[in-house]
Nucleic acid binder design. Sequence first.
DNA 1: TATGAATGAGAGTTCATTCAT
DNA 2: CATGAATGAACTCTCATTCAT
Lengths: 201, 201, 201, 201
Amino acid sequence: MPRRQRERLQRRRDIFRAAERVFAEKAYHGASIEEIARLAEYGTGTVYLYFKDKETLYVELFAEKVGELYAHVRSRVGAEKDPITALRRLIQARTEFFDQNREFFQIYMREGMDWWWLKSDRWAGVRNLYDSYIDLVTRLIRRGQRRGSLRGGDSRHYAIALAGMMMQLTRDWLERKTGRPLTDSAAIVAELFLQGAQVKK
Amino acid sequence: MPRRQRERLQRRRDIFRAAERVFAEKAYHGASIEEIARLAEYGTGTVYLYFKDKETLYVELFAEKVGELYAHVRSRVGAEKDPITALRRLIQARTEFFDQNREFFQIYMREGMDWWWLKSDRWAGVRNLYDSYIDLVTRLIRRGQRRGSLRGGDSRHYAIALAGMMMQLTRDWLERKTGRPLTDSAAIVAELFLQGAQVKK
Amino acid sequence: MPRRQRERLQRRRDIFRAAERVFAEKAYHGASIEEIARLAEYGTGTVYLYFKDKETLYVELFAEKVGELYAHVRSRVGAEKDPITALRRLIQARTEFFDQNREFFQIYMREGMDWWWLKSDRWAGVRNLYDSYIDLVTRLIRRGQRRGSLRGGDSRHYAIALAGMMMQLTRDWLERKTGRPLTDSAAIVAELFLQGAQVKK
Amino acid sequence: MPRRQRERLQRRRDIFRAAERVFAEKAYHGASIEEIARLAEYGTGTVYLYFKDKETLYVELFAEKVGELYAHVRSRVGAEKDPITALRRLIQARTEFFDQNREFFQIYMREGMDWWWLKSDRWAGVRNLYDSYIDLVTRLIRRGQRRGSLRGGDSRHYAIALAGMMMQLTRDWLERKTGRPLTDSAAIVAELFLQGAQVKK
DNA sequence: TATGAATGAGAGTTCATTCAT
DNA sequence: CATGAATGAACTCTCATTCAT
């Protein structure tokens, strides 16, 4: 890759990095382009050389990171045949990813809530990414159901419930900042989701 | 209660009602005081006679509604001795409440996701209410654990996971707008939380 | 008219007056809303209570003043039957109007040049006003031609030429700021347009 | 001329050419240096090697073109003794020039309309050129008056009126984009200016 | 007490100009 | 010399808050 293009990509990353931090801390509306630029150590105008406007910066940042999450999870789940093992790996992978991407997690979680009534076309792409992640989980669950290792019922609801458990546990972990690694909670999630909380008689 | 005070309370409620709708639809930053006032059929300035500022209005609205949720859940769980039954009732009660308070759910959900400003002192009240709800669930779970009907482990994590499941399923229900009542999902949640997804051998 | 509405109209006029001066001096792009507001002795935001945006303020100001010009000219030309006399009155009336509306003249002249390649729909209304003024002149000339008192030829071209003469003479008068009233030039225009510059043999 | 200087002049001309097109289309404020540079196929910074700033570029472009117009008209009018013929030639020459320089006409016209900034010293050069062109016409007219072939009166006003007629007719021609050549209007202008619109009895 | 017009701080965005390469 | 990325001042516009009525 030519130097020019490399540098351009580097600056883009610098701005992404700063934007991630500021958006994570202040949320979309609370974040100002000037603050992002200052944190990235660029001038305000520079941000606009790399992103058309604030919304584009946000959407592209989101898309990029969700793409990474998705890729990471897929690579960990891989070609695992057993759906139960695959689910455990998925939970583990997601947990690792957010352990490494705490700032992004805050954005991810927030948008998990917010975007869907922003019907704007700008968000359609992001929306699809998010959905395809949920779909990945759904497909795994359905496979488990067909194999008879998972209980019947709406597989999509199971996927959503699983996502919800993970999300809130991650949020709690981030908020509390105990020393323990997030990955501890992967085990809890897997057991709870698979076995339930009730003691079998 | 003297008429003056009664009227004052009525106006407060009117504004709450309007604020709830606008905050639900547009989120905190997207909502404008003027829109809330217009919807409540008061002048903009009037809002400031009842609430110091926008943030106060939001926090107090949140506190009020979380208080209602909390009261509703407590009343349904009541003095039920069996923790499993109590949990089922809790899930049912929460579901009913949000079925009746869809607008508030959108606000509640956002706060469940977006905690950064909870750090500020202004939001301490909201924070405490939110926590006290989690604490209620936690205590129920702990009781179940002591009785041996629930599996051991961090009871708080269980409570959080349960809350997460419910939250995401509710969000999905709201987003999809199928005709089905939200309470359908109460059963899914209860079974999944108690029995898990995996088929017992 | 109720007091409220009267006051509203008054403020609108205040802003128009200030906008007229600033637009006249600095042209559309050089004028800033803040300067207009300051001159009108209002806050910046106030301007936006009366006009949706800068372009609207400009267009409405323009439309209002062209409307006045048009009304003034029509009222002076009246039902005059003789086209030659009517033309003299028209020239006189236009001259009077700009003598009283020097600032607007600068805007009028500028836009006589500029707007027509701004194809934006926002300008369509203004454009029509301007055209209908030219049409008024054109119709007078055509009447003169039919009566045999004016030379044949494209009446619209005559109208445009007449407008051009008046415009540049007015501009010169404004620029030079001699003590003489603009209306002096009305006679020059009328004679030149009607008799031409050449001595008849 | 040494190669260096030749190249320098060539680049200057390239930029002028591009600037002419962009200023014509978008007017001074709407034109951006970057667009001009791009059209001229140079880097943005390069423009600043040849012109101190945007204003200088504009003024020098204007001066250059008005100089050309002036030279063209002088060359056509030449040593013609008869003032009436000279005026006809002048009208013809101006018409030809703008027929060949439509883009510049748009710029010229705007300045003919918009003189406020001519007050500033920066624009003195433009101002003088513009005046010197009017002076040329004025002198011709005065000669006609002395010879008794043109009617008495303020010769400068006649010159300005003549310029106004031509300007508006040219503008109309440009706006309407009929197929007809602009030079058609030269005859109209000459007859109207010399004979007037009124039928002689 | 209720009002809503007025305010101005602060946001996003553009672009003439500079300067390291 | 030529470049074009970087800059930041300046612009338009919004909206929480105030205050005269």
